[in-house]
Nucleic acid binder design. Structure first.
Lengths: 275, 275
DNA sequence: AAGTGGTCTAGACCACCAT
DNA sequence: TGGTGGTCTAGACCACTTA
């Protein structure tokens, strides 16, 4: 096997995926060749084969049974695009939409500088810290499917790039690409919390939906090299268009017992947060 | 290290978790000892240490940085219970609720035999096949938090156990334990789809909520040794109490373009499905 | 009994990051 | 330059399933 800056195991992952895709490997039943067989066939050690198979199993593409063999997952053949996206490190919404056969596009709703306000806490900043706030809509074949609001401390933007930010921003890049280009930072770790919420008037309008309609809400915080928060994201997905798939169990997280609702007030970030 | 039927790597996982919990290991900064250090300290090879660290990283407990070191995840110390649950193979709703400090209990709403109907498709059965249908409510300190409906082909139940099923069923066991006890089957693989839905009248009543209130809905299909479906589960979580956490990105799944809604009809499974 | 995946080792070298 | 995690190997033995 040839080495080209990507690990042998990862090359194997996509080669096996291609074999599944083409159907070549499945002639005898639905079973993949044994690990010993694969290691010989590709000229790598069995440990490397096992690492590749572990990734494919995590992605839901295959199933391994001790003492029996390795199977192709029954639901994977029709959704190889999703598996490939899972194996990607940071797929974009555009990729996700297109991998399901839709035509994808993104429009910028708003970008501006606002004070951190209530976002100071998750971002570990002071409330007066200026944030870059970006609001975008992603459409699947003209149907608005996702609203994405992202917040990054303006102080993180490279000083010489700051003047150009609001005018030169291009909305098709992911938040990871944004942080790379404008802040020279990399996201090392991310926490995503998935909730169900009811659409408010603003979100209903943006997503061409009805107020009160159920939405999937994903709240993200990305952490950088020193484990300090780099960005805060609040994404809403139209429930009739989007769902999430897990091949294993997700972590269920119970909130603390209900408390008195926080007092309502008009804050700059509400324009983006829409809760 | 002593071997007691659980792998060295898994023992290491929980020993490291205990070290994090006790704070012993974090004296110098927030960094875990190096892999070489850990392998020497516990008397195992570095490969085994790496396997344990990989699991901890997947569970969101630690963060590894190439060339730098291994850190304890910033959000993990306050939620070690959730991490331990994630590392479990099949945690029960009871465990999940209790790990967050609530008092958990389960009540049986209904158990009966119904024809498969619309569930014939996901379960790969004929519509007339009899199913065991189980409807349960899980409460967190008396607040109804989860409604769980599970469906298993009655033919899977061991013939000699069938007469006793409806009367001897105990509702506190997980669907995995149910399949083990009554069907002698093991779930090898599971697909979970996460959606947002609005509560209908029935679910609102069961969950002490309002019709139209957003709910997290998790639809599961568990597969057995031969990759045939063993059970179908439809779980609804009150959105104000439950959310899911991912330490990496979930797989986003777009539905096919909207189609005409299926015609409404009164079917036996609707009593359980409530959609 | 044969074949599969699961666990574990000891050692090597590479890539990355801080100093 | 030294230490860290990332990759990879060759080989051993164990545990499980099926025939």
């Amino acid at each position: 096997m040839v080495r080209k800056n990507v690990s042998l195991a990862n090359q194997l992952v996509f080669e096996i995926l291609a074999l599944i895709d083409s159907g070549e490997i499945l002639s005898d039943g639905q079973v993949l060749p044994s690990e010993a067989d694969l290691s010989q066939r590709f000229g790598v050690s069995r440990a490397t084969v096992r690492e590749a198979l572990a990734k494919l199993e995590l992605g839901g593409a295959i199933i391994r049974r001790h003492g029996v063999g390795t199977y192709v997952s029954p639901m994977v053949t029709s959704h190889l695009g999703s598996v490939r996206n899972w194996l990607d490190e940071a797929p974009s919404f555009i990729d996700l939409i297109e991998s399901e056969g839709y035509r994808a596009d993104c429009t910028l709703v708003d970008i501006r500088i606002i004070p951190a306000g209530a976002l100071a806490q998750p971002l570990d900043l002071l409330p007066a810290t200026p944030l870059v706030a970006i609001s975008r809509i992603f459409r699947a074949t003209n149907i608005p499917a996702i609203h994405s609001a992202n917040f990054v401390s303006f102080d993180l933007v490279e000083p010489e790039l700051r003047p150009a930010l609001l005018s030169a921003y291009t909305c098709s890049q992911t938040i990871y690409e944004f942080l790379q280009q404008w802040c020279k930072r990399k996201v090392y770790n991310q926490k995503s919390e998935i909730r169900a919420v009811a659409a408010d008037d603003r979100l209903a309008d943006l997503l061409d939906s009805s107020p009160g309609a159920p939405l999937l809400c994903v709240e993200e915080v990305g952490y950088g090299a020193t484990m300090k928060p780099l960005f805060y994201g609040l994404n809403h997905f139209r429930a009739d268009l989007v769902s999430f798939i897990e091949m294993h169990h997700p972590t269920v997280w119970l909130r603390p017992p209900p408390q008195a609702a926080a007092e309502k007030a008009t804050r700059p970030e509400d324009h983006f947060l829409s809760r």
